[in-house]
Amino acid sequence: MSIDLTDEQRAFVDAVADFCRRETGTREQRGDGPHHPDIYRKMADLGWLGVTVPDQYGGAGAGMVDTCLFLEQVGYGQAPVGGFTTSAIVAAAVERSGSEPQKKTVLGGLATGRVYAIAMSEPEAGSDVANLSCRAVLTDDGYVINGQKTWCSNAHIADAILLVARTGGHPGDHHGLTMLLVPTDAAGLRISGIETMGGREVNDLYFTDVVVPADAVVGTVDRGWQQLMAGLNVERLILAALMLGTAQRAFDDALDFIKQRKQFGRPVGSFQALRHRVADLATEIECCRLLVHRVATLADRDPHKVLPRESSMVKLKTTEVARQVALAGMQMMGGYGYATEYDMERHVRATLVSTIYGGTSEIQRDIIGKTYGL
């Protein structure tokens, strides 16, 4: 299928691309970390962070196609607004299942530049979400939370965390999971950073008798698993669109280098081995672009329909291709691809982890296989 954008969408894409060229075009502008609060705030002031937020909460009320167009440009422009992805995922969950006060707080907060995080993984429960053991117990004062979460992106810069905790059943059960909004300044919550190849992005969370009111529940008690499944389209499309932009940037950076770098008296890109590699990578990226746009279109057509096969396909294909492109770019650039003077090493770090978070490639393949009755 072809990608036909409206004039308004093309103007939106051009505006985001121009902003990134001006505001995030150099390492000095981007800073060292994955999230730059000043740049994030500027995007909020332009109305871009609320792209999918309904207008009654201060957003633009657009769909997943527009969100993917935005994220592709964010990825391409290397804009350090890492807080947007988790915030958009949390906002989508609250929009589907939350109360009106929660929607005003979280959706309105995203549109104005606030950051939110989501906490699912635990030391003994990563891909196996049903094995969660962090527990929230209802008392007269509200829910008392005890346990640990890990690999929680952006918790250290978030205003609140969408926690998935066990309120019933036992580890191994899908029933008995509940979503709760927990302020990051809640008494008894300790946030401890985990140093990674990408710097400070993820955190361990320790809950010790953390109390939240009963109305902190998002949706229905013990139905958190079903609510999580309803959000697959949004989460996986967001990650895929971001990596699509990153893949295109890695490709363009490598292409620019091999056109200029000379060995044996001519540009290295003129050798057949690299020409063919470039042709293959360009084709793979275009396939990903079509797939992202197709799944986003399906999601907009029926926002309530879960697309387990398509959402897993788009996440699997795009993140794997992004990793392939970045590693190939590093190889084509030789030692320069490994040097921090160039952005390729950053592309490699970003794309490697993309095949892990949001459900590993192995999990995506397993889900796709199950949709075929296997």
Rank of each mutant, 00 (worst) to 15 (best):
E201I: 15
V182T: 02
A158Q: 08
D185E: 11
C152N: 06
R200W: 10
G198A: 13
D173P: 03
L181M: 15
M179I: 09
F207E: 06
Y206P: 09
V210G: 02
E195D: 12
V144K: 12
G199I: 01
H175F: 11
G198D: 11
T167A: 14
T208N: 15
G172N: 13
G168M: 04
A187V: 11
I157Y: 04
R190L: 09
C152Y: 02
G172F: 10
K149Y: 09
W151D: 04
H175G: 10
P171D: 04
E195Y: 05
T184K: 08
L205C: 06
V202W: 08
H175K: 12
D159A: 07
I161L: 13
S153L: 02
H175A: 14
L177E: 09
F207T: 01
K149F: 08
L205E: 04
Y143H: 10
D173Q: 03
V210K: 00
D209I: 03
L162V: 02
C152A: 08
L181R: 00
V202P: 07
R190M: 08
T150A: 03
N203E: 09
D209R: 15
N203W: 02
D173H: 11
G199C: 03
T184F: 04
F207H: 04
D204E: 14
G193E: 12
P171A: 01
N154G: 05
G193I: 00
Q148S: 04
S153C: 01
I191V: 15
G147D: 01
Y143S: 09
A187G: 04
V164G: 09
M179C: 13
I191F: 03
G169T: 07
L163T: 05
T167H: 14
G193H: 07
V182Q: 02
S192H: 03
P183Y: 12
Y206I: 05
L177S: 10
A186Y: 12
H174E: 11
T150V: 06
H170E: 14
M197I: 11
L162Y: 05
L177C: 09
Q148K: 14
A165I: 01
T196R: 15
V182I: 02
L181I: 14
M179D: 05
P183W: 02
I161S: 05
P183L: 06
P183N: 01
V164N: 13
M197G: 08
C152V: 15
P171F: 06
Y143I: 12
L163F: 14
D185T: 13
G188N: 06
V182R: 07
M197Q: 14
G172S: 13
D173N: 14
A186W: 14
A155M: 00
L163R: 03
G168W: 01
V210W: 00
P171T: 03
H174D: 05
G147N: 08
D209F: 05
D159C: 07
T178D: 01
M197A: 13
P171R: 06
K149Q: 09
T167I: 11
A186K: 14
A187F: 06
L177D: 03
P183H: 08
G176H: 04
G168I: 03
N203S: 12
D159S: 13
L163S: 11
S153H: 09
L189W: 00
G172E: 03
